[in-house]
Simulated scan of single mutants.
Amino acid sequence: MLDATIWLGASVGRLLGDLGADVAKLETPDGTADRRRGYPLPGGTSAWWAFSEAGKRGIVLDPHEEDCADRPVDLLAEARVLITSEGPALRRRGLAPEAIRARYPGLVHVSVSLHGLDGPYADRPVLVGGRHRTPVGR
């Protein structure tokens, strides 16, 4: 199982890992914003990150390396389940849900999105300036 989530999506991977799934977390070399969210523990990571990422293996992808562009695709070929939480970011990388389904028909894709994959708020970021963002108004 490949976990490419931030914020609340990470708890889905944690829950499935607690139930016995082998979960691998994708991160950049500086980690996700979740590492710095909330109360810091000794060593600098946050209590939220320690909770939501417990029991997961880590896979680091540096977007500045030349061969990084193909790595997520290679990892998807080996995975049975993909958990995501950022629809617009995946679309920008050519990994929209439709493209994932077409290329990997046997892959279960779990999308945990604050704003949904379509509709008026779909392209809004979950995090702005490292803070959780929720839609307000119309």
Rank of each mutant, 00 (worst) to 15 (best):
R57T: 06
A33M: 05
V136M: 09
K25G: 04
L19A: 15
E98K: 14
A122H: 02
T84A: 09
E98G: 02
D70H: 04
R91V: 10
R138F: 07
R35M: 05
S11Y: 11
D62I: 06
R91G: 02
I59V: 15
L19P: 05
D22V: 10
D62G: 06
P63Q: 12
R14L: 15
L114P: 00
S111T: 08
G130F: 07
L114S: 04
L82K: 08
V12M: 11
L90N: 12
A21R: 04
D3W: 03
H115W: 01
G20S: 11
W48P: 02
A99H: 01
R138W: 11
H109S: 07
A102S: 14
A10R: 07
G43W: 07
P88N: 05
F51E: 06
D67Q: 13
A99P: 00
L26D: 07
V81T: 14
S85A: 14
A50W: 11
A77N: 01
H109Q: 05
P63K: 13
G20A: 04
I83N: 02
L41R: 07
I100G: 08
D62K: 05
V73P: 00
D22C: 04
G129E: 10
D3Y: 03
P42F: 00
P105F: 00
L107N: 09
S85L: 04
D67M: 05
L75E: 13
H64Y: 09
L127N: 10
R35F: 01
V108M: 11
D30K: 08
V23H: 07
R71L: 15
A54S: 12
S52A: 15
L127D: 06
A47T: 15
L19H: 12
P120F: 12
L15K: 04
L82G: 09
V12L: 13
P135L: 02
V136G: 13
L16Y: 14
A89C: 01
A47R: 03
T28W: 03
